[in-house]
Amino acid sequence: MSTIDVNARRAPALGGFNLTMLAIEFRRVLRNRRAVIFTLIMPVLLYLVIGTNSTYANDREGSGNVSAYILISMAAYGAVLASTSGGAMVAVERALGWSRQLRLTPLAPVAYITVKSLVALLLGLGSVVAVNIAGAISGKPDMPLHVWIAAAVIAWAGSIVFGAFGLFMGYLLPSENVMQVLGPVLAGLAAIGGLWFPIKDGTVLGHISSVTPIYGLANLARWPLYGGAPHLAWVVNLVFWLVVFVAGAAWRMSKDTARV
């Protein structure tokens, strides 16, 4: 290294995005037993407790039954929980000074956000699949296969909103235990967003519900069960909160040069 030729050095392709890093990030997520239990097992348990109760599970609901309705809701809840915790990992990384360390490498912020989004989506996918497998094994949900698939895909894809939410909160909350704060917050948002129990449109509660972040995702995920056209309000709600959370995360990220 006696002489270093500045011009012989290159910057990495794709802003530093690469599969080695992605593989290590995936491994980190899977090694985090608490997160796995939280995001995979909890929604499954909730479904099994609430969604298989024979006093109402077989009542008709849309083109399926109540058990199917609850299955979709819990899959959406699981995806929300998982994506949020995937995004919120950034809080831990900031607290450890890892975000700053990464700023001393060629890794571009957009490549980092891409990796974090993929991690959030992977976690969300795991959760949706787990709840749906539990549902299939229980034999209680009844809905056409295309409804089953469409609902699962919408719950999963829509949960990207909460990957952004987790990222935003991860930058906002300087806590290593950010999910212990966000867990109850998400449970509350899920309740008011209509994921735990149906909330009638047009009521006071319905109006409040319709502006909260889970409302759009909850209704869109259940939409295949009822068919027809999706309400514009659902789509607007989902897009609005996606924009808010992405903008919030980007804003905090741009301010973030904190050292430990």
Binding site: L96, G97, V260
Partner: peptide, 11 residues
């Protein structure tokens, strides 16, 4: 090289 931190603990 930073004074402290800058490392992930779970890998």
């Amino acid at each position: 090289v930073m004074q402290t931190g800058g490392l992930l603990k779970d890998i």
